[in-house]
Design a protein around this nucleic acid. Sequence first.
DNA 1: CCAACGATGGTCT
DNA 2: GACCATCGTTGGC
Length: 187
Amino acid sequence: MTLGQKFYNQPTIDLAKALLGKYLVCDDLKGKIVETEAYLYRDDPGCHASRGPTPRNAPMFGPAGRTYVYFIYGMYHCLNIVSGKTGEGEAVLIRALEPVQGITLMQKRRKTMKIENLCNGPGKLTQAFGITRKHNNISLLDGKLQIHNSREKPEIASGRRIGLSAGQELELRFFIKGNRFVSKTPV
DNA sequence: CCAACGATGGTCT
DNA sequence: GACCATCGTTGGC
């Protein structure tokens, strides 16, 4: 079942944790979210929105429950879920999924048969799911990209976010403890 | 196993 | 012109 607006309106850190164990669904592809990172509008120099709105980060300043997809390193896309209040500029980065459905197509797109290597990183999962700029700034409530509920209550661990040159000291990375599809082991 | 490095192009100053 | 919320390959052990 698709999650509603209320789910996305919770505080960003709560949302980052609540997303763990839920399902990202796109057409016939499905993956369980096992790793996320929170990006905050206050005291977070690692956040794209930290220096105010620009054309790229505009979706982050919109309402919660929409996507913010950006292109990085000339090759990859990263999928975020906009969170927080409209005008603030917060989001949750989806960092890793456990493949559940549509694995054959993911293998074709990722050019590997290895299940662990299909969605265990932010650039990998967008490649496996075919997520590009076309999926930027769209609603997760009724679009082709959705988050579905689950009854799982995973054991959550946290650590430092990955790949940042600012704000590394903040422990805003969350993942399901012991899950083998998490992109990197705990720090 | 692992650290180092290059690919590659959009975005912002 | 510098930077970048990455990844696959390479070459060392």
